[in-house]
Design a protein around this nucleic acid. Structure first.
Length: 116
RNA sequence: UUAGAUAAACAGAUGGUUGCGAGGGGUAACCCUUGAGGAAAGUCCGAGCAUCACAGAACAGGGUGCCAGUUAACGACUGGUGGAGGCGACUCCAAGGAGAGUGCAACAGAAAUAUACCGCAUAAGUCUUUGACUUGUGUAAGGGUGGAACAGGGUGGUAAGAGCACACUAGGUAGUAUGGUAACAUAUUACUUCUGUAAACCCCACUCGAUGCAAGAUAGAGGAGCGUUUUAACGUUGUUCGCUAGUUCCUCGUUACAUCGCUUGAGAUUGCUGGUGACAGCAAUACUAGAUAGAUAACCAUCUAAUACAGAACUCGGCUUAUGUUUAUUCUAACCUU
RNA sequence: GGCGGCGUAGCUUAGUUGGUUAUAGCGUUCGGUUCAUACCCGAAAGGUCGUAGGUUCGAAUCCCACCGCCGCUA
């Protein structure tokens, strides 16, 4: 359930979230989050050239997408997210990345539950 | 057995659960089909395609450079020639011109493209006279330097010497003959003895307009209402009616978004024929990614040598670089055994 | 996707129309000066010239192929 509607696409949107969103870090991954006026949540993925060559970046993006798909229930509606990979992610396996992502998601939900 | 040389092949397959891009079907739920590479990479060459420029010619600038062939084209490839390396199988070579001209050749050395330091020889003079020194002349055999000193060593010749002369050898240029399509090879005649560098400028031959799909083309798309007999077209025998054009409003886009370009092609696979080969011809077969924050993942089972390098972005032909495994009645050398 | 530039000592750099042993400053080390430190004075070490081939008698420099970094183009 990660169809086109749930993805961030525009460069403008990315820029806005980087500027105004709240950031949550782990060793291999950074998650930006911000409130949105639309109901459906949107999430974007970003893997920079520093991480590795093209095939590796694609693979990491797929793995991140797969993790998010499985843990979609932990994300909230009325929100936009960006998941950014750091350089350290290149040496990690699928399970380790998954652990890191879960850790970051926990952080986000802690910060936002009281406000709502 | 060891060490090489050369040439190929594969780049996983099958099944299950969840999930993504594209196409098709369906009112919908959903179902079906299909979905990265040998290098997709580097962007080093060559083309198609598109836009702009352009009467023609020349100059400037860039590229290529033995010969013949292949190709749409190429700086690619194939087969030869010559050269270099290797015991050998075999491999490598930007391989035209230095006798058109210019430049450069550090240090060393007398001298670096022309010359004379030591030396050798001789004439004159001086002196402490069977010698030494000075000046002039001749010379390049010997010495030492260097990557390179107008070919090599021998005989004659000479005051001393010198291709000065002679024979032999080694080149070079021109001609002839034979073989070869040709590069060239072999033989022979005449002349001749010439430094290297053109990946220095340059000369000669051939060749090249510029920019790249972010090129470029088309301009709205969707929804709701109004208007209807006055006009046009289609459906209907005709009317009503439907639909399009018309017109109003709203939303999206105007941050170049959307649609096209965008995948059927100098193509692929298989077979046959021609050619030493690159390759060409003929026939049959199938249609096999087309995204735009950008699609192949996660988990598991079985088999296996199945691991590595690595992800299409307009499309082809090469080159270069990265990289795992397997194979061969193939070839070479050395050693051992019979 | 397309295009351009750079790489020399620990750092910043000169040399890039070929020539001997590759230049300078800062820093480092050693010595001097001072009661001591700094400033100052003197000396030394430190370079596969990004990597690997080729041309040449000789290459940081010329040619070719790679590697890394930076920038431009929306």
């Amino acid at each position: 359930m990660l169809s086109k509607q749930n993805r961030l696409k525009k460069r403008k949107e990315f820029g806005y979230i980087y500027k105004n969103g709240e950031a949550f870090h782990s060793k291999s991954v950074t998650l930006y989050a911000i409130d949105s006026k639309f109901k459906t949540l949107k999430i974007g993925f970003s893997v920079s050239k520093k991480v590795g060559k093209a095939y590796l970046r694609n693979k990491i993006k797929r793995q991140l997408r797969s993790i998010i798909r499985e843990e979609l229930s932990k994300l909230q509606d009325h929100k936009n997210y960006i998941l950014v990979a750091k350089t350290a992610i290149a040496e990690l396996g699928y399970d380790e990345i998954r652990r890191d992502v879960l850790y970051v998601l926990g952080k986000v939900n802690k910060n936002h539950e009281p406000n709502n």
